[in-house]
């Protein structure tokens, strides 16, 4: 120890400073939260995936075409209800298939959405971030996991995916029976349970994303049914997703008894719209 002090005494201040710098470069403690080499590799691998950046706007003309030309194989009981909905629609009394601000759910969110979404790749996951209905989102796990054996039933279900070349193949189960299979806001029925959905999602050109959706819904269909959705790419901050809040339209701005800003119940609306009931 005494020797070390004596050695130190012979070193110039500059040398001590240089040594200090070198020591900090070599023996710096590991950065808290640094990506592991394996995770860094996964992030690098994402650079090789196709470019799905930007904002994806549903092709509403295609949604209308699917409704017109691609009829689902409803079973006899379901077809009766659909026929009634069609009649009501024509007569200007559309059925409220999406009601109470419940989510569109899967796969209807992918089929009749009018609002945009963006798609984020991260290690082990593809995440779809939407605008409609409280900025709904889908998590698609691409880390090789299986579906849970007894999943909690949810509006978007449990989705796992894998890449086949530049196509993302997504398998979804665990969708709540109440989630609708809808071809429009006025034509559709609850899937009634045990639904299985497989999607093949890919770019068909630089700015078109295609989602081929095959739905097996044994409680309401006589056989599996395939429909296709398209999304057009928009780029630029003017197209950014904004906050979507389904229930807001039921309320008006107001203040509470203590003078704090709040929302107060507005008039009841016609069929979820802005037109007050009974006001002519």
């Amino acid at each position: 120890m005494a020797g070390a002090v004596s050695t130190m005494g012979r070193l110039s201040l500059g040398a001590i400073f240089a040594l200090g710098l070198a020591a900090s470069a070599v023996a710096a403690p590991a950065r808290v939260g640094a990506n592991s080499p394996a995770l860094q590799q996964q992030w690098r691998a994402i650079a090789n995936l196709p470019d799905w950046s930007g904002i994806w706007d549903p092709d509403r003309a295609n949604e209308a075409k699917q409704l017109r030309e691609n009829k689902p194989p409803w079973n006899a009981a379901a077809q009766k209800v659909i026929d009634f909905q069609q009649k009501e629609l024509v007569e200007g009394r559309p059925t409220l298939v999406l009601w109470g601000c419940f989510p569109h759910g899967h796969p209807t969110w992918m089929m009749i959405n009018h609002n945009v979404m963006e798609i984020i790749f991260s290690p082990g996951r593809v995440t779809m971030l939407g605008e409609v209905d409280g900025n709904r989102m889908r998590r698609i796990f691409t880390d090789g996991r299986k579906h849970p054996e007894d999943p909690d039933l949810t509006f978007h279900g449990h989705s796992i995916g894998h890449w086949e070349g530049d196509t993302l193949v997504v398998d979804t189960v665990g969708v709540a029976p109440q989630a609708p299979i809808a071809q429009s806001e006025a034509i559709g029925l609850s899937n009634n349970g045990d639904m299985h959905v497989v999607e093949r999602i890919r770019l068909t050109d630089e700015n078109t994303l295609e989602d081929i959706i095959t739905i097996t819904a044994p409680k309401v269909f006589t056989k599996p049914w395939t429909t296709t959705s398209y999304f057009k790419r928009l780029r630029g901050p003017q197209y950014d997703i904004v906050e979507g809040q389904c229930v807001r339209g039921d309320y008006e701005e107001g203040v509470d008894k203590d003078g704090y800003a709040t929302f107060v119940a507005g008039p009841e609306r016609v069929n979820g719209g802005v037109v007050p009931i009974g006001k002519k």
Partner: peptide, 10 residues
């Protein structure tokens, strides 16, 4: 509350 996404056929 009635709000939701609805058809415009009315």
């Amino acid at each position: 509350p009635a709000s939701a996404h609805h058809s415009a056929s009315m």
